[in-house]
Simulated scan of single mutants.
Amino acid sequence: MQTFLSDIGQALLMAFGMAWKTGWTLVLGFSISAVLQALVSADSISARLGKGTAKEIAFASAAGAASSSCSYASAAIMRTLFKKGAALVTSLAFLFASTNLVIELGIILLLILGWQFMAAEWIGGLVLIAIMSLVVKLTYPKKIAEEARTHEEEGGGHQHHSMPLEGDTWRDRLKDPAAPGRIAQNFVMEWSMLWKDLLAGFLIGGILSVFVPDAVWQALFLVDAPAWLRVPLNAVIGPIIAIFTFVCSIGNVPLAAVLFSSGASFGGVLAFLYADLIILPLLDAYRRYFGWKLAAYIGGVLFVTMVISGIIMELLFSALSLIPEEAPDIQRDLTQFSLDYTFWLNLVFAVPAAWLFWKALKGGGHQGDHEHAGHHDHDHGAHG
């Protein structure tokens, strides 16, 4: 019993270490997202994404990279874009970019797994979009897609509201007296959408790092198998594990670190990171948004794309000798605390975070806040 309680304590310390290591990066990323949501509306974006051309795919990718990194919010925006006339391929490009090309995810990967994973995540995000675009172009189910645009959603179909400001240009919107309050409200919305996923990711990562022996992971990821077998199978196993972890794009980084330090291949870990878009609650959300036919198509396209991208990135980084030779000692790295740069950055970024929360509590715009919260609660019903 004493050993069990000690292990529980170690797992909780690991979870806290993960949260401590990434705290300031979340404030930075959510602040950037809050500003961009206040300056850009989904309507203005969807009007430019209806044909699915290469230029539109690039625009959608850029817009996604500048958008929210929460998988649930990204899926909701993707649904809005598609139902307002955007092509499926550009809608999915936005979805991939908004969860794989965002700055805070890259910084967290840099801090926990190293620059190679940060680079591979961003480069792989572009590879994902390119492969997805090709797959959709070759297999586009036109009839099913058009039916999905008018699909009557279950639960009333709450829409995602990022509450953009009024004004002809972004400079005009930024000068709006309501700008600070609106940005603060968007910032708080980001936290309200993501805190459960982050908490789950930290706890799952901490528990698995302590309670699952390395031998189990090594057997699952075929550590002793030849590369020609291990690389593709790891790329398949990674997304399958992600489907059942219920953790979003930032929350799954700690678990990715555990998997890599326990024997998963570089490409398998990347495929796991990409697969936050096909966790079970989101697959169910796609079904409610579009009907089961298009949901099945989207899930299949995403899975195939993630597996192929994981293999490509493994081969590319291996050819360039950029795969880390040694996995991080995740338990050691995340359970040692000192007055280092993480301490000071967390202290510095706590100030604007506190101000934004305070500003949101005393600000206006409650209608948009309630609408957004309604959507979030609806989408998280299966997530818990």
Rank of each mutant, 00 (worst) to 15 (best):
L5T: 12
G9T: 14
G9N: 12
Q10N: 09
A11P: 07
A11H: 10
F16M: 10
F16S: 06
K21H: 12
F30G: 06
I32V: 15
A38W: 06
V40E: 04
V40Q: 06
A47G: 06
E56H: 03
A66N: 03
A66Q: 00
C70N: 13
T80H: 10
K83L: 06
K84I: 02
G85A: 10
S91I: 03
F94H: 01
L95W: 07
F96R: 00
T99F: 00
T99C: 07
I103G: 00
L105M: 14
I107V: 14
L109N: 10
L111K: 05
L111R: 11
L111P: 00
G114M: 04
F117R: 05
M118G: 02
E121F: 04
I123S: 07
I123D: 01
V127D: 00
L128V: 07
L134T: 11
V135R: 02
K142M: 08
K143T: 14
E146L: 13
R149M: 07
E152Q: 12
E152S: 08
E154D: 03
G155I: 01
G156T: 05
Q159N: 04
E166S: 10
D172C: 01
D176E: 09
A178Y: 00
A184R: 03
N186H: 01
M189G: 10
M189K: 12
E190N: 09
W191S: 02
M193A: 15
L194G: 13
D197P: 04
L198G: 05
A200H: 11
D214L: 12
A215C: 02
V216Q: 04
D224H: 14
A225Q: 14
W228T: 10
L229F: 15
L229W: 11
I237G: 04
G238L: 09
G238C: 11
P239L: 04
I241H: 08
I241A: 10
F244P: 03
I250C: 01
N252Q: 14
V258Q: 06
L259E: 13
S261F: 10
L270H: 11
A271S: 15
L273Y: 09
P281Q: 03
L283R: 05
A285T: 05
R288V: 00
G299K: 05
L302T: 12
F303Y: 15
I308S: 04
G310R: 08
E314S: 13
E314H: 15
E314V: 04
E314L: 04
F317D: 13
S321F: 11
P324I: 09
E325N: 12
D333G: 01
T335S: 08
Q336W: 08
S338E: 14
Y341R: 10
V351M: 05
K359W: 02
A360N: 15
A360H: 11
L361E: 07
K362R: 14
G365R: 13
H370Q: 10
H370I: 10
D379I: 01
D379A: 15
D379N: 08
H383D: 14
